[in-house]
Amino acid sequence: MIGLNALFHRRPEAIVVIGAAVFGALSFLIALRPALDLNAAAAARPSSEPDAAVARGRALYLAEGCGYCHSQFVRPLFIDAAYGRASEAADYADAAPPLLGTERAGPDLSNVGIRQPSVMWNLLHLFNPRSMVPESVMPGFPWYFEIVDRQRAGDGAGDDVLALPEPFLPAGKVALPRREALDLVAYLQSLRQE
């Protein structure tokens, strides 16, 4: 052992080589090999034909960092029972990256497509969450909407016209969703873990 002690106290290359070898071997055993095995074993669920709007919506979901506060990971625990069945490896087989998440400042969204099926509710909630849930701390995404005069939008009668009172919108104005808002809603509607 004296020899080893002297080796590490005299030779920086010994620290680097042994350190890298031990760390590399442990990394292989605990991370690389399980990751390879799991990806090989997990068969993707037969999914419906890929939807361009859903894919664009998912990209926006990533860009806006929604996954920092919303998990998509239901644990096999009674605490998570309200979110539906527990998540399985196959649920994530196609996901790049999978969005299990580590925090629930907002609720889990694995099943939000079933829980919240209304497109208009989702649009209003994205425009300003406080309009639907007064105590919500979620950011609004007004940049995915266009604010126009009520008259120009046909007196607020169209399917996609967001008519909100003050303080959410100035009097006489309505919000029209841009394509991004509709894409995000399409993605949220696609989240169904049945």
Binding site: L32, Y92, A95, P97
Partner: peptide
């Protein structure tokens, strides 16, 4: 190689 799938979670 680990951009997708459950393996990404391990990494």
């Amino acid at each position: 190689a680990f951009d997708r799938g459950i393996g990404n979670v391990v990494i």
